[in-house]
Amino acid sequence: MSKRVSTSLLVVASVLASLLVVGSVSQQAGAAPAAFVHPGVLVSRAQLDHIRSQVNSGAQPQTQAYQAMMSDGLLSQSRAPHPWSVVECGSYSNPNYGCTDERQDALAAYGNALAWYITQNATYAKKAISIMDAWSATITSHTNSNAPLQTGWAGSVWPRAAEIIRYTYGGGWANLSRFATMLRNVYLPVVIKGSNSNGNWELTMMEAAVGISVFLDDKASYDTAMAKYMLRVPAYVYLSSDGALPKTAPGGPTTRDGIISYWQGQSTFVNGLTQETCRDFTHTGYGIASISDVAETSRIQGNDLYTGDIGTRLRYALGFQAQYELGAAVPSWLCGGSVKRGLGPVTEVGYNALAYRLGNVMTNTHTLVMNNRPAGDNILFVAWETLTHGDQPN
């Protein structure tokens, strides 16, 4: 072999090795930790301790948010769970056979788990357990067209409640393993597959998959879910650095016309525009909520995504939507000059991380956060985030 050929082969080998290293680093960007932190789905023990300290001292914004949560009907101790064996949810939850019941029961379990930790009153822990037990003894599947999304909505909330109870309540949970089996068999196989529908579907499903993986100490599923999330977020929120057209997720459109159609007919792209901005702000809010929630869980697990590309996209998405949610005039190039507002109480987690903790100036988002406080449970899978993440230093 000639020296020139040998040298060329070495160069090729070096380039391939570099590509492998780059690929490895990319794959590790959202990888599971060596050992999962518990409780570690959306809220950590340090955050729970801060919440309790704030409420016990009457400090804001937690005290007002706590009082609002405790007066919510979902936390009534006389409220009974309504489990279904088969939850059937069509488009826009029509038909609705157990859809609302499942979502509200999951939120009720989470609210009671938070109430337990704040008050240290075992009544709330037992209530949360009774709700989770009722469902783990009953549910077998989700059906109809909205089944993947419904599984993601409820599946995002169950592990939040379960993590708090499992790792902070010492009174016992006899059916813990049955609940884990429910998450493993009924929820995880559905959400881990992801979705080629509108981006909020896959983002919510990945939030559920990440949270369930933490609860199950399932590193392989966590890595799979995070890998999908790391590809979906750039395909959901545009940055000018992406080029003339937004990025696409695997399985998404690849032509200019296809991408514009997928982005609801929008052909002008600016920082912070989302794939669903021109659909409506409500569904955009679902996507933003899950981007924030997964980033928060990842940070608790030792990988702070807020300081990189994910955080930059989230910061721009919050600010872009916030200005129009607050009433700014919509230019003619954006959604034909009209947007459908209704972002919802989805700003606390992302704003707290990016502005309160990291110090980014987010004027419009700050105004919207303050206007929404205390954020309650009036969205499908987002609840009480002023209580959990308002001015949260941990």
Rank of each mutant, 00 (worst) to 15 (best):
T274F: 07
Y351A: 06
C335T: 08
N200E: 02
V369C: 05
W384R: 15
L75F: 06
G73V: 07
V157N: 00
V22T: 01
G172A: 01
I164E: 05
W384G: 13
A106C: 14
T268K: 11
A329I: 15
N121W: 04
Q54W: 01
Y306P: 09
N112D: 05
A329F: 14
S267K: 03
G155V: 02
L203M: 00
M206G: 00
K340P: 07
R357V: 13
N198E: 09
D293N: 13
V43P: 00
V86E: 11
Y187I: 00
I192D: 01
G376R: 11
S85P: 00
P159E: 02
A329L: 15
A80K: 10
R52M: 04
A174E: 14
A35T: 14
N144A: 14
M70A: 07
I260R: 12
N96M: 03
A225G: 06
E348D: 13
R299W: 09
A17C: 12
A59T: 11
R313K: 14
G337Q: 03
R313S: 13
N196G: 11
W84N: 02
W84D: 04
D218V: 02
E102W: 02
M230L: 15
N144R: 15
T143G: 13
A34G: 12
A13S: 15
G319W: 05
S130E: 10
V369K: 01
S18R: 14
G73S: 14
R299S: 09
G152W: 00
G30S: 07
K340Y: 12
Q392E: 11
V214N: 09
W263L: 07
W173D: 07
S6Q: 13
A154M: 12
Q62C: 09
S91W: 13
T248P: 05
R45N: 10
T181D: 14
T268W: 04
L380Y: 13
E88G: 10
R341D: 09
M1F: 00
T388P: 03
R45F: 10
Q104H: 14
W84R: 07
L334Y: 03
S8R: 12
I165E: 08
S78D: 10
G359P: 07
V369G: 03
R178D: 12
Y92I: 12
R232I: 08
N303Q: 13
Q264Y: 04
D101I: 04
N175T: 09
A322K: 01
V186L: 08
D304P: 07
D242C: 06
G23T: 09
S240I: 08
M370E: 13
A80L: 10
A180P: 00
S197C: 05
G376C: 09
P81C: 06
E102H: 11
W135S: 00
Y167I: 08
Q54R: 09
L16R: 10
P189K: 12
T100P: 04
G319I: 05
Y236T: 00
I310N: 07
G265F: 04
V270H: 05
Q275F: 06
W116C: 06
L149Y: 09
